[in-house]
Simulated scan of single mutants.
Amino acid sequence: MTNRMYISFLRLPLLIRILVMALLVFLTFGISIHLLEPETFPSIFDGIWWAIITASTVGYGDYVPQSLFGRLTTLVLILLGVGFVSSYFGTLAAAAVTKQDALSEGKIPYKGEGHVIIIGWNERSRELIHRLASSKNPQKIILIDETLPSNPVPKFVHFIQGKSHVDETILKSDIEKAEKVLITADRGNDELQADMNSILTLLTIKGLCSQVKCIVEILTAEQVMNAIRAGADEVIQSNKITSVFMINSLHSNGDGLLSDFIQYFQERRLSSYEVSETDIGKTYMAVCQEFLNKGSLLIGIKRGKETFLNPSHSVQIEKNDQLLIFK
């Protein structure tokens, strides 16, 4: 039984072991000084108080041993107790520094809910993190990346270091309670290889938590369908979007209208809303005017799998339509 208790004690964290031993020392010397000098230390509590104060080198002087054996006991307590107290606080400080380093290096799992997970560190994710953090209602952001040695944005981000297609890494992000996941493409690799890595990460996430919404950046048009098959809720073809902007720039008169449009797009948010009962049967023009009066811009309708941007003004709003709005 004694051996079993000793083994259990050794399995405790070092901080707990030092604290237990220090408390035993205070208790032992507190009782001892009370027995040696009951007049100076009228109660066991007074003895324990004296032991703690003496060992912590505070030494108020409210209780001072008078006998030879009492003072010898004090010397032993100072030599023994100070070591335990110093070790305890030294270990406590070291543990705090170690945990802070582990947090910065991405070794600490995240516990929470309603967070956004961004996979891959690049200029796009940097800009996205900056905009999410500066929004009116910022969400907690989890960044997963295997190339970074430490957290690049410690003020706003909980960093997890590791391969995004490994279960252990994804589970550290508390994936089941996440709101959305954004998988960015690694442009340092060949485009096809980057897409394959993104799809592999998507498969890992959907295998662990099928209900979480995943947005995937795909570089090659050929892999879009594979990303959808893998369970992507939305696919962003960044190369296609870039080429559209380039074509418009080439055909523009150099008046900077495209830059103005991008600035407008950055400052506002595109959202979809279920049509209300009162709007069913109204014309697109009528509903558009209602949103303009509220300071929002209606740009189209999503009906089933089809999206109609700037449809005819006479088109009637139907049940289950989704309104595409800039706010």
Rank of each mutant, 00 (worst) to 15 (best):
G112C: 05
C214A: 12
W50F: 14
M246D: 05
Y273R: 11
S198H: 06
L171R: 12
I280P: 02
S173V: 01
E176S: 10
W121S: 11
V216C: 06
M246W: 03
F41H: 04
M21A: 14
D255K: 15
I160C: 01
L323A: 04
D195C: 09
V116H: 12
G114A: 10
M196S: 08
T242W: 00
L92V: 00
D46M: 03
Q100E: 10
G295R: 13
E267N: 15
F45D: 03
Q263N: 15
D186S: 09
A22L: 13
I205Q: 02
E39Y: 08
L77I: 02
S87V: 01
S43Y: 03
A55L: 08
S198M: 07
Y60P: 08
E37Q: 07
I301Q: 03
R268L: 03
L103T: 11
G254I: 14
K305Q: 15
S314V: 12
R187W: 01
R126C: 02
N226L: 15
I7N: 04
G61H: 10
M246H: 05
G254E: 14
D260C: 08
W50L: 05
S272D: 05
S8W: 05
A55P: 12
I16M: 06
L219C: 04
L309F: 14
E37N: 05
V85Q: 00
G114K: 12
Q139N: 12
Y63R: 15
L270N: 01
K206F: 04
T28G: 14
S164A: 15
S198A: 15
G114P: 08
I31G: 09
G59E: 09
V181Y: 04
T204K: 07
S296Y: 15
Y110K: 05
K302M: 09
S252D: 14
L103G: 00
S135R: 15
D233W: 02
I299K: 08
Y110V: 04
K282P: 05
R126N: 11
K240M: 05
K99C: 01
G256K: 14
R126T: 06
H251T: 13
R303D: 10
I18L: 13
L219K: 02
A95C: 04
V244M: 06
I199D: 02
